[in-house]
Computed example of a mutant assay.
Amino acid sequence: MKKIQIAGLSALTIFGSLSAVNAQSATTDPVGYTTVTCLANSDTIVSVPFLNSTDSISSSVSGSATADGTKAEFTMSGVSGLTTDQYATLYYVRFTSGTLEGNVYQITNNGADSVKIELNGDASTDITSGDTFKIYKFWTLGSLFPVGNDTIEESTGNLAFQRKSSILLPDNTSDGIQHAPAATYFLKSTGWTNNSNTSEDSSNVILWPDTYFIIRHSSLVQSATTYTATGTVDTHAKTSIPLSTRTDGPQDNYVSIPRPIDVKLNELNLFESGSFTPSTGNLSFQRRDQLLVFDNGVQAQRKAPSKIYFHNGTNWVDNGNVTGNADEAIIKASQGIIIRKYQTNDGATIFWNNTPTY
């Protein structure tokens, strides 16, 4: 198990590959940062492996949840006096105990002592009195990359030849594999806007904690920039990441690991949790689930994966070296990956329970 370096009482200081191992006890959740180099005229696939603890709340469910179509509403124990909808839309509930432990749900409304969440297909009956949870604020384009930041070069206008840096969000809703981005945004001196609607203010576009995004520098960007992610380290024992499947072919899931350290494949708990179907052999027609990794050190847009891994039921295997053992291959901090799920009989969503190695 890796140890995390603590500076002072509550700051997690992360350098380079995050291999520092000195540790001291801390009484609050540690905070820290990671850095990734974003090459010029290239795509960099990244995530935010930290929590945004702005206005966060820790509480528990009081009484039974009430169903309202696709939503559920419940009372928060020990919380009162909230302004109506002050946590709506830009905040989410993450359960820290109970049946839904580790799951994330966007808040649609809140009252003085209650919240209503979008269930994403789950049942309100899965929420029971006493279940603990935390409320966190989503990272947004504007909060992560405000005007004048050092990562995203501001475009000089709306036309294609005036665009410098863009953020591309992956498509996690369409069936199949190798999807085009769901949306593209770029930053001007006046703020973020949508590639398909340049009059739209996109500063509050949310970045989900279990997926990645792409920083694309166009050919107008002359030199590399640095993406620095900062925030609170997630120390909770369980994060649940949904993985979609379908009945008539493979399904790509564009995900990230919410941990600010490098992680070995055999530390992912992906196969061990039953979330990753092992292959029956090394040949292409025997492959089942696959894990695709991208190299941010390669200068290119629309990159092909640099590595594809599968599991043979005993250990991880590199597609390019099927006789080797890839258990200790590294997924870098802040890196996005694709989990390509093999078809299933029922097309059900499978939840990957990821636990920290620190």
Results as ranks from 00 to 15, higher is better:
Ile167Gln: 09
Ile167Gly: 08
Ile167Thr: 10
Ile167Ala: 07
Leu168Pro: 01
Leu168Lys: 06
Leu168Gly: 03
Leu169Tyr: 01
Pro170Glu: 02
Asn172Leu: 02
Asp175Trp: 00
Asp175Met: 00
Gly176Asp: 01
Ile177Val: 15
Gln178Cys: 04
Gln178Phe: 08
Ala180Gly: 06
Ala180Arg: 09
Pro181Lys: 08
Ala182Met: 03
Ala182Lys: 15
Ala183Tyr: 04
Ala183Arg: 11
Thr184Asn: 08
Tyr185His: 07
Leu187Lys: 11
Lys188Ile: 09
Lys188Asn: 07
Lys188Asp: 01
Ser189Tyr: 12
Thr190Leu: 05
Thr190Val: 12
Thr190Ser: 14
Thr190Gln: 08
Gly191Leu: 03
Thr193Gly: 02
Thr193Pro: 04
Thr193His: 09
Asn194Glu: 07
Asn194Pro: 02
Asn195Met: 09
Asn195Trp: 12
Ser196Thr: 15
Ser196Tyr: 11
Asn197Ala: 14
Asn197Ile: 10
Asn197Glu: 13
Asn197Phe: 13
Asn197Arg: 05
Thr198Ile: 14
Thr198Phe: 13
Val205Arg: 06
Val205Ser: 01
Leu207Tyr: 05
Trp208Thr: 14
Trp208Arg: 12
Pro209His: 15
Pro209Ile: 14
Asp210Met: 09
Asp210Gly: 09
Tyr212Ala: 10
Tyr212Thr: 07
Phe213Met: 12
Phe213Gln: 12
Ile214Pro: 06
Ile214Phe: 03
Ile215Pro: 06
Ile215Ser: 04
Ile215Gly: 03
Ile215His: 04
Arg216Asp: 10
Ser219Thr: 06
Ser219Gly: 02
Ser219Met: 03
Ser219Pro: 02
Leu220Ser: 01
Leu220Glu: 04
Leu220Pro: 01
Val221Ser: 06
Gln222Trp: 00
Gln222Arg: 00
Tyr227Met: 08
Tyr227Leu: 08
Tyr227Gly: 03
Thr228Arg: 11
Thr228Gln: 15
Ala229Gly: 01
Gly231Met: 12
Thr232Tyr: 10
Thr232Asp: 07
Thr232Leu: 14
Thr232Phe: 10
Thr235Asn: 13
Ala237Leu: 12
Lys238Leu: 15
Lys238Thr: 14
Lys238Gln: 14
Thr239Met: 13
Thr239Asp: 11
Ser240Ala: 15
Ile241Leu: 11
Ile241Lys: 09
Ile241Pro: 08
Thr245Gly: 04
Arg246Cys: 00
Thr247Pro: 06
Thr247Asn: 13
Thr247Asp: 07
Asp248His: 00
Pro250Val: 02
Asn253Met: 02
Asn253Gly: 04
Tyr254Asn: 04
Ser256Thr: 04
Ser256Pro: 02
Pro258Trp: 00
Arg259Phe: 11
Arg259Asn: 09
Pro260Cys: 14
Pro260Phe: 13
Ile261Ser: 14
Ile261Ala: 15
Asp262Met: 10
Asp262Cys: 08
Lys264Trp: 05
Asn266Asp: 15
Glu267Gly: 13
Leu268Asn: 12
Asn269Ser: 13
Asn269His: 06
Glu272Cys: 03
Ser275Ile: 07
Phe276Met: 13
Phe276Val: 12
Phe276Lys: 08
Phe276Arg: 14
Thr277Phe: 09
Pro278Arg: 11
